[in-house]
């Protein structure tokens, strides 16, 4: 499989590289903006879980219009990891569950609060859907919690959400803080992916609500009146898909020649993956240094007496060969639609 095969399969991956975005998710924010006019009148923005930085790139390009020195606009990007600098974006390395982080954000706005908070964070999915959805929900709630500290009344909150079995519980939670909540699926997000975005407008916390970081915000429970597990009552917020159908379809397989007379040129990814947790393990695997089944005799350093002169006793090395079986399944990228969407270019 050549390096261009992913370009064929995923048109947005290819476009992201061609347009210099750090991840294809940049298109998602651009498309949300097309429908919601998110950036209108926005001066102060917080980008939570910003790495690798594609949303910050979009914010910088859209809000500053290329003018790096525009002091009116302040973009603060927060992430636990460090990321490559982006001109015009203030970077803040911190934990979004800490009050100090919220205070630091506000200090960059000179005490004022943000007009818009965006969060494109997602965990590395495990594959067990209930756990993945739970963790994503907790990430969103943590983002919401810090948002209640830094967002001005009337402001907008945009975050990634997994549309899973208990998504209605999150909706009802968000509705407490925002009268307008919509689920939005940009065209650049695949049909097969459970990922979508909540666009929450007109922040209006309940009367007397005091933001509190010392206890985590937990998701709602099913009850009989408002949100049933199996019954007819469920809070289902309106779903919106990006209106413009003329753009590229993320599910469609395109030929490499998108336009007549314009030849396909392979572009390397704009930015390589940030140090992933499995970096060392991958290195060991590549150099064939992962632990193999050992000879038990050698392991216990016993020299066994050989009963016959020319008889050799060995531990069979049944499993010491390369994993000829797993290799195919594990690395056939065509099987990894959902995963790719979530980890963006990092898989590269």
């Amino acid at each position: 499989m050549g390096k261009s095969s992913k370009d064929k399969r995923d048109v947005y991956y290819r476009l992201a590289k061609e347009e210099g975005w750090r991840a294809r998710s940049a298109f998602k924010l651009l498309q949300i903006n097309e429908d919601f006019n998110l950036f209108e009148g926005v001066k102060k923005v917080v980008d939570l879980c910003a790495a690798p930085g594609s949303w910050s790139q979009v914010l910088a390009r859209k809000l500053r219009g290329g003018d790096v020195k525009n002091d009116d606009v302040k973009i603060v990007a927060v992430d636990l990891q460090a990321m490559a600098p982006i001109p015009g974006v203030i970077q803040l390395q911190g934990d979004i569950t800490k009050k100090s982080t919220a205070q630091e954000i506000i200090s960059h706005f000179e005490g004022e609060k943000a007009d818009l908070v965006v969060c494109d964070g997602a965990p590395d999915v495990t594959g067990l859907h209930d756990i993945d959805e739970y963790i994503q929900a907790q990430l969103l709630l943590a983002a919401l919690n810090i948002t209640t500290h830094v967002l001005r009344t009337g402001g907008t909150f945009v975050a990634k959400i997994f549309r899973g079995k208990d998504v209605t519980l999150l909706y009802s939670q968000l509705r407490i803080f925002f009268p307008l909540v919509a689920i939005f699926k940009p065209r650049s997000s695949r049909n097969s992916s459970i990922e979508a975005f909540v666009v929450c407008q007109n922040y209006s916390p309940p009367a007397g609500y005091i933001p509190n970081m010392s206890n985590p915000l937990l998701d709602h429970k099913y009850d009989t009146d408002y949100n049933n597990l199996e019954g007819p009552n469920r809070v289902i917020v309106p779903f919106l898909a990006c209106g413009d159908l003329s753009g590229f379809d993320s599910d469609r397989t395109y030929p490499l020649n998108l336009e007549d007379g314009k030849d396909y040129v392979y572009h390397p990814p704009t930015q390589g993956p940030i140090k992933p947790p499995y970096e060392e393990a991958c290195q060991l695997r590549k150099t064939d240094q992962l632990a193999k089944v050992v000879d038990p005799k050698k392991a216990s350093s016993e020299s066994s007496d050989k009963s016959k002169g020319d008889t050799t006793t060995k531990g069979s090395s049944i499993d010491s060969l390369p994993d000829c079986l797993d290799e195919d399944l594990e690395f056939d990228p065509s099987e990894q639609d959902v995963l790719e969407d979530l980890t963006e270019l990092q898989i590269g």
């Binding site: 193999k292 089944v293 050992v294 392991a299 994993d323 797993d326």
Partner: peptide, 20 residues
């Protein structure tokens, strides 16, 4: 693990068996 393998180790860190 995710590689569909079950490894048996000793406390010295050697893999004694791998079940696939």
């Amino acid at each position: 693990g995710e590689d569909s393998t079950c490894c048996v180790w000793n406390y010295e860190g050697d893999v004694l068996q791998k079940f696939k």
